[in-house]
């Protein structure tokens, strides 16, 4: 009992270091070091897409802050609310979400519960990782298909955003794109696991690289 308590008092230095790490270090993703899972020209295109995703994420978040504040300024200083600001935020959150799920897939950042996964022997883990990546890719491609369907339906119905008076499908067109690119990343992850040694969480992330805690189990 006593020893267990002392165990509790000790802080895992890794946890501490990671938690304290200020500003840009290992937690931030350095896009210039990103290596695509695709060969040749396709790889170049893929790296470019990754860059665009990153920029969309950053710009989307900044634009959201500015847009929201502009509404406040309008209301108080100009006596006029920007009544389209809510719709702009809707467009931005969709953009951020769908640019982000693909970017997260590239860097193995999607949330998962890995407790049982982590205690399996390595060959099992590798096999399971391939199954996970394939099933996830399939789910993403399925959603790609039906989100194209949904975007087309919206386009044909001609639904408009009430304040901006622009077609709704303009702001949701990111959904099929995001699902497709995410599916592609998982498919590539499956392939990478098949042809390479080690276990890959994504095309650029080796398992154990980021967060496999020693104390879990």
């Amino acid at each position: 009992m006593r020893s267990e308590q002392q165990d509790h008092e000790k802080v895992d230095p890794d946890v501490l270091a990671r938690a304290q790490a200020p500003a840009l270090d290992e937690d931030d993703i350095d896009d210039s070091k990103y290596v695509s899972g695709l060969p040749g020209v396709l790889g170049v295109v893929d790296v470019a897409i990754a860059r665009i995703e990153a920029i969309l994420l950053a710009v989307g978040v900044l634009a959201m802050a500015v847009n929201t504040m502009a509404n406040v300024v309008g209301r108080f200083m100009l006596g006029q609310s920007l009544f389209f600001s809510e719709e702009v935020n809707r467009a931005l959150i969709i953009l951020i979400t769908f640019a982000g799920i693909s970017y997260a897939a590239r860097h193995g950042r999607h949330i998962r519960m890995s407790a049982f996964f982590d205690i399996m022997p390595p060959p099992m883990r590798k096999l399971l990782m391939i199954v996970i990546a394939l099933v996830t890719a399939a789910a993403m491609f399925l959603l790609t298909w039906y989100s194209v369907d949904y975007v087309l339906a919206q386009a044909s119905r001609g639904r408009l955003l009430p304040a901006l008076q622009v077609p709704v499908w303009w702001i949701i067109v990111w959904a099929p794109l995001g699902f497709f690119l995410t599916g592609l990343q998982y498919a590539l992850t499956a392939i990478k696991n098949m042809i390479h040694k080690d276990i890959w969480l994504s095309t650029s992330t080796l398992e154990g690289y980021d967060d496999t805690p020693a104390e879990e189990v």
Binding site: R75, G79, Q80, S81, F83, E86, A163
Partner: peptide, 9 residues
Amino acid sequence: FGATPTPLP
């Protein structure tokens, strides 16, 4: 009407 219309969810 002279008000400041404010859209709000």
